[in-house]
Design a protein around this nucleic acid. Structure first.
Length: 930
RNA sequence: GCCGGAGUGGCGGAAUGGCAGACGCGGCGGACUCAAAAUCCGUUGCCCGCAAGGGCGUGUGGGUUCAAGUCCCACCUCCGGCACCA
């Protein structure tokens, strides 16, 4: 009984391909190239999820298709293997992260191979490989060695950074500090979420409502020395250069919004002018008129950023963020206690709390006033956490009449509201909130100006008198690049130690020849009592080194998981190069990536970070193209199987879903006990009870996770691949359905029976398979199938490609004679989708393996054209009949053919024909009167 | 609140402004079988009708058009993301 048995043929062909290196990619492409890339997975302990093969199958189909068309294809796979779970596992069990990571990679590799993906496994890499870490660290050193030239808008070697004379004069240490302050990789104090109970620093997403997600322990934000990457320097280029990319518009917009460019003005408000101190203010203004607007503000002014300098005359108070450096200086003795308490409370709040929970505005008056630079009036300064320290200058001018946050704050604290903008279409109402554009009122010499004109004019005016200047800001922040973790790349940086054993502040890059800086062997991964990174507990022989007679302590922070994924697409091209991170000739030949498929969860960060690194490498001449990824596609999420949920009251009876209360408990209802009634699903036995129907995200806690191993065992890898592609459009979110899998498995069974005689005792061809010439009908069917499948692969519409192949099989199944000349091309186009079955059928048909490298069939256009077409005939736009006409019939021919149809003639009899629409090859429509 | 995306049979979905529901699941009927499974064939949007046939149908309400699932306006629901960025 030679039935289709995936468990027999799939491993066989996987071994065959591997043994012969079927999918090995040459060093350089010959002719047309295609770099087809998946977002590589994090090898979690749970193994492959059914979401992974969705994207991986899509790229695999395209890769196999391109290969069959003669393209040289690069299709690699690897592992993003640093990351928190391995470290937490280590803390719990004492297993070194490298060990558990290797075990997980082995599982992922087995599962990926089981699905028959045509990766060149010779190129596999993990971001944790010492050889890979070496080059990640090397790229960090490139960043460390680069400053951004704002004039050329380009990253340049730090040695080329112009040193101002006064810095030069201050000596070598000053020059070094100046350089360190301009590098793309620099150090700064940044707040971290330190959880004393867990003894570890937490990522933002691990902190929920001010306590740790695990354990619910309190978390405090404390400043810690951190490594930052100056991604903001590249903000403009990262935004502008999105333009030329073949990415979904929605992803481009997401990135652009994330970068969040805004334009406006910076304005200085002098601090501390008392009543009657007009002369001091006048002197300050006069001085500014000659010195101009200083690059950095002194302590005598409060500098603010605003996008609406046209509302300058409506300022009624100022706000500084709780972390503002001038806050202490601004606070008068009487307010000191209140301000200190407020600041302490703000420090306890995480970013999430400051936004999510505390919507109502809070703040404290500092007791100080600043002077309005144009009107000279005194303006009170408040501290409030609705102003963020990390954006703009960390201080704002508040215009309650024209900003909803300021309006709300002013309402809470009874502050003045001064209207200075009037809507175009009506007069302003005093005390109302109006955030739109209009014309200026009550604004000195600017009164009457339109918002836009006001903005550009006032920014220039302010600049001319040294009180302000036009400014650009980004929501994008510099990238906090260090983690207080063990399982990451160590920084290749040494901190010089003084005679006292304390750091001198002088940094030294590790010599590239010494890379990689390997992680030390730790036996104890347990957290400590301080927020120092685990590496600070390394053995002294790792931690302390001597170079050129000086003592150094190694940097003990590690890089975030993003680091490795920032450049893996480059290393795949030249994975064993020991001299360079990638050979230039190879890079030029293969880059950029032609198709990049992965989950939308990486739409912003991963793609932005890699683009940033790539641009730095480009500026420094290490890569040849400014953008890494040409065409990008996000595959949709796969949800669990559809579930019906009913609700039971505490007394036990059913409660209709729309009437449920808090006490009612959800209960799963089997699908066969439910039926649809109108808009809703109801219980079959109690139709007055509505139930909810929904598919949920797969999760362990919900217990709806589908395991790919199990699916392969039950249906085969080809069925899993095919099903994931048949479910719906690649980019859509769609629910899993086990009966759907069995449906495509049925299709594969039918493919098998098209070629193989299932009733014979031995594996032999079906008796219908013959060497006869195909009929015209058969050729037409074949060529139309090939044509549709070809176009659908190009547009990644795999679901409709499969549907078309199903139609072909449905067409062939009843044939008593099945010519090889149509079966063989069909098996060829099936190969990218169901490669194992295709290889087996190809061999059955006596063709030399592998079909995976067989030539893609050519479509003969003459089989795509029809001699005659059946077109619909409408009367008043309603379908009333059909007529068959020659395919090339003109409108008049079609009209008369339609009018001659007895049924149509009857409908038209006695009515006046107002108009006839006849679209050649499409339809005829009679528009009649009466 | 803001920004995306999506609403089409019992279900997943298909449809360059031109025959709505391809293909698959599920259902129903039949053939094969002692029977069942498997397989093959047919049928399957809803309503009225014995039938011929007719009516209604792509979230809701309007509009454009000879013709709208598709274009425009307003709204509703669901999903995803962002969220005090001055």
């Amino acid at each position: 009984m030679p039935r289709y048995q995936p468990s027999r043929i799939e491993p066989k062909w996987q071994e065959w391909w591997e043994a012969r290196g079927t999918f090995a990619t040459p060093r350089l492409p010959a002719g047309r190239k295609a770099y087809i890339l998946d977002m590589f997975p994090y090898p979690s302990g749970d193994g492959l999820h059914v979401g992974h093969p969705a994207g991986y199958t899509a790229t695999d189909i395209v890769a196999r298709f391109e290969r069959m068309r003669g393209t040289t294809v690069m299709h690699p796979m690897g592992f993003d293997a640093f990351g928190l779970p391995a470290e937490e596992h280590a803390i719990r069990t004492g297993t070194p992260p490298r060990q558990s990571t290797e075990r997980n990679i082995a599982t992922f590799t087995r599962q990926l191979k089981m699905l028959g993906f045509s990766y060149d496994w010779e190129r596999v890499l993990a971001t944790t490989d010492p050889d890979y870490v070496r080059w990640t660290q090397w790229i960090f050193l490139v960043l460390f060695d680069t400053w951004f030239d704002p004039v050329l808008q380009q990253g340049r070697p730090i040695a080329e950074l112009p040193i101002p004379p006064d810095v030069e004069a201050a000596g070598q240490a000053a020059v070094a500090a100046f350089r360190d302050g301009h590098r793309l990789a620099y150090q700064s104090e940044a707040p971290v979420n330190w959880c004393p109970a867990l003894g570890t620093v937490l990522a933002n997403e691990e902190v929920v409502g001010g306590v740790s997600e695990r354990g619910g322990h309190p978390v405090v934000r404390i400043p810690l020395r951190q490594w930052m990457l100056r991604i903001t320097a590249y903000a403009d280029r990262l935004e502008r250069e999105l333009d030329g990319l073949d990415w979904p518009a929605s992803i481009k917009k997401l990135q652009s919004d994330w970068i969040g460019r805004s334009t406006g003005a910076e304005v200085d408000f002098p601090i501390g002018a008392q009543e009657g101190a007009d002369s001091a203010f006048a002197r300050w203004k006069a001085a500014r008129a000659t010195t101009g607007f200083p690059e950095t503000p002194g302590h005598e002014v409060l500098r603010i950023y605003t996008t609406r300098p046209d509302t300058l005359y409506g300022v009624t108070y100022m706000v500084v963020s709780p972390e503002h450096p001038l806050l202490d200086a601004l606070t008068v003795p009487g307010q000191r206690e209140a301000v200190a308490a407020y600041r302490a409370a703000a420090a306890r709040k995480s970013d999430l709390d400051r936004t999510d929970l505390a919507r109502e505005k809070t703040g404290v008056f500092t007791g100080t006033h600043v002077v309005h630079p144009l009107t000279g009036t005194a303006i009170p300064v408040w501290v409030a956490d609705y102003v963020l320290a990390s954006y703009g200058t960390g201080a704002i001018m508040a215009v309650p009449a024209h900003d909803d946050r300021d309006f709300e704050f002013a309402g809470t604290f009874g502050l003045e509201v001064t209207t200075v903008v009037e809507p175009d279409e009506r007069p302003a109402k005093p005390g109302e909130l109006f955030t739109g554009e209009g014309r200026a009122v009550n604004s000195g010499g600017y009164t009457g100006l339109a918002t836009r004109e006001f903005i550009s004019r006032v920014a220039d005016d302010l600049e001319n008198v040294g009180l302000g200047r036009p400014a650009v800001n980004y929501k994008l922040r510099d990238w906090l690049f260090s983690r207080q973790r063990f399982w990451g790349e160590p920084f290749p940086i040494l901190h010089e130690l003084g005679a006292d054993g304390e750091p001198t502040g002088i940094l030294r890059a590790v010599d590239p020849a010494e890379l990689p800086v390997a992680l030390p062997e730790l036996t104890d991964f347990k957290p400590g009592d301080t927020p120092d990174p685990p590496l600070s507990r390394s053995p002294a022989e790792w931690l302390f080194v001597e170079r050129d007679g000086r003592r150094y302590r190694r940097e003990t922070n590690t890089m975030p998981q993003w680091a490795g994924s920032c450049w893996y697409y480059l290393r795949f091209l030249d994975p064993r190069n020991t001299d360079r991170f990638i050979g230039p000739e190879i890079e030029r030949a293969w880059m950029p990536v032609d198709l990049y498929i992965g989950g939308a969860e990486h739409a912003v960060l991963h793609l932005l970070y890699s683009r940033f690194w790539h641009k730095v490498l480009y500026d420094r001449g290490h890569v040849s193209h400014p953008e890494p990824f040409g065409r990008l596609v996000n595959q949709g999420m796969i949800l669990g199987e559809m579930e019906f949920t009913g609700y039971r009251s505490p007394k036990g009876g059913w409660v209709s879903a729309e009437k449920r209360g808090g006490d009612d408990v959800p209960a799963k209802v089997p699908a066969d006990q439910v039926e649809k009634q109108g808009e809703h699903f109801v219980l079959r036995d109690a139709p007055q009870v509505r139930v909810e129907s929904r598919a949920y995200k797969m999760s362990k806690s919900r217990g709806n996770v589908v395991n790919p191993d199990q699916v392969v065992r039950d249906f085969g890898a080809d069925a899993l691949r095919l099903y994931e592609m048949f479910m719906g459009p690649l980019e859509a979110t769609k629910p899993w359905s086990t009966s759907g899998v069995s449906g495509v498995r049925g299709f594969l069974d039918r493919c098998w029976r098209l070629v193989v005689d299932e009733r014979a005792d031995d594996l032999v061809l079906a008796p219908q398979v013959c060497d006869e010439s195909p009929t015209e009908d058969q050729l037409r069917e074949l060529h139309r199938t090939v044509d549709k499948v070809t176009r659908d692969i190009e547009s990644l519409s795999f679901n409709t490609a499969i549907a078309r192949m199903m139609e072909f099989v449905n067409f062939c199944t009843p044939l008593e004679r099945r010519p090889r000349a149509i079966l063989e091309p069909f098996v060829t186009i099936l190969a990218p989708f169901a490669p194992h079955l295709a290889e087996e059928l190809w061999a059955m048909l006596g063709r030399p393996a592998p079909v995976s490298l067989a030539a893609w069939p050519q479509v003969d256009g003459r089989w795509l054209r029809d001699d005659t077409v059946e077109v619909p005939v409408q009367v008043q736009g309603k379908l009333r009949g059909r007529v068959t006409v020659p395919a090339d019939a003109d409108a008049e021919t079609m009209r008369s053919a339609a009018a001659a149809d007895p049924k149509i003639a009857e409908l038209l009899a006695g009515r006046e024909i107002v108009k006839v629409v006849a679209v050649p090859g499409r339809l005829v429509n009679f528009v009649v009167k009466g």
